[in-house]
Design a protein around this nucleic acid. Structure first.
Lengths: 220, 220
DNA sequence: ATCCTTCAGTGATATTGTCACCCAAACCGA
DNA sequence: TCGGTTTGGGTGACAATATCACTGAAGGAT
């Protein structure tokens, strides 16, 4: 898939001017990452912009003492502005992007990116919107972490992660990393949920047995 | 001050093309806010971009139950991208900008902003850099709130807020709002600092008496 | 089977947040 | 100048969350 196709598919923009288009065809490249691979990180600073065609990238931050927190996820049709931010600010940051599923993306060198931004208003608004969405995502994270209760946050995540069969294949440690807390804390809250009949657990699995009950907790 | 002057002063860019310049002179306006006034907020969504000429804007987030946390400050020469983000994402957010000192700013209607971004590469990079800086600021806030100890964070803030005379005119409540914690917590930590000879307190004032000691705490 | 790694459970303790107060300093009008 | 009022700060009890140091169980590998 080319970047032109990508913009057409996800942004609904009309075809770009032919000369822009030709430049893009030449400069954009498709890359793939297997699930679990690091897409970018402190030790792996990209010099290109990424546009996700398929899959999910989980962006999380790791503390000195090894605790994690998930900042947001990049889905197909979105771009990963944090890499841009890093490139532009040329500042160290400790966020890392991990391919949560197999990932296909288009990368665009910075010079081409600059051109496209200047010449295509639709692309430009897309980029600004992407930045805006991330800023707002982060505001939400700050709000949750600073003021939220973990039982509420955990209930939210469980509802968000559950498939139709209500089963979530995850460990307590992974859930703790989602929320930026410790495994023991998650274990205790899940035990409480189980005692109240909201979920059931086996090793490596959480099954939702009362979504309505969880929603009640998530909303408080 | 015009926006053209502003870019020259803070961005070091050469004069803009004459036609762009003329458009700007016509569309940009200077606004002033007295210290303490709300510059933007959930109930006061701006439709223009702001560029700070003088003063400081404190951007903070308020939780349901009234606790605050300071996200970052906008200083002279910077722009407030959160308003942009809000405009573009057209999503609700609960951050608010308060003039911390008397503030002078230039506002630019959105259409003019779009034009300038598309026509002036230097301005465009400025805007991207502004976004990037805020993203990184927020990463820092997330890290602090999720993983930091309050004594460490409080020591950092005290060092950052102190003037040369080592005196800070602030209340415990204000410090609590900086960190997103409760007043009682700040009171107790400050008492501990005072007991250890790092600070002294009077009503409405904190005086640093041992900066080195505070730095030692701030680094841990 | 037996080891071995990963996952989960638990008690003790530290840190931080919440609640319900109290008291004192500064402010303000009469 | 007095007395009331507002604001800032102190305190104890308790709740929520984090940390530490373990334990044992589940499931995979040899």
């Amino acid at each position: 898939m080319t970047l032109v196709d990508w913009t057409a598919r996800f942004q609904g923009t009309a075809a770009l001017p032919r000369d822009v288009r030709d430049r893009l065809q030449r400069s954009a490249q498709t890359v793939r990452y297997a699930a679990g691979k690091s897409v970018f990180g402190p030790s792996n600073i990209p010099d290109s912009l990424m546009f996700l065609v398929d899959g999910t990238i989980r962006v999380s931050q790791t503390s000195e003492n090894g605790r994690d927190i998930v900042l947001y996820r990049v889905e197909a049709g979105e771009s990963c502005v944090l890499t841009t931010a890093c490139m532009l600010a040329e500042e160290a940051y400790n966020a890392e992007g991990i391919a949560e599923t197999d990932v296909t993306a288009i990368i665009l060198p910075r010079t081409s990116f600059d051109q496209l931004v200047s010449e295509e208003p639709a692309f430009r608004s897309f980029v600004f919107a992407a930045y805006s969405r991330r800023l707002i995502d982060l505001l939400r994270v700050v709000d949750d972490v600073a003021f939220g209760r973990i039982d509420v946050r955990l209930a939210e995540r469980l509802l968000g992660l559950a498939r139709d069969d209500q089963d979530i294949a995850t460990t307590h440690q992974q859930l703790a990393s989602e929320l930026g807390t410790a495994r023991e804390v998650v274990s205790r809250v899940l035990q409480d949920f189980a005692k109240r009949g909201l979920i059931s657990q086996t090793r490596g699995h959480v099954t939702l047995t009362d979504r309505a009950g969880l929603r009640a907790i998530a909303q408080s």
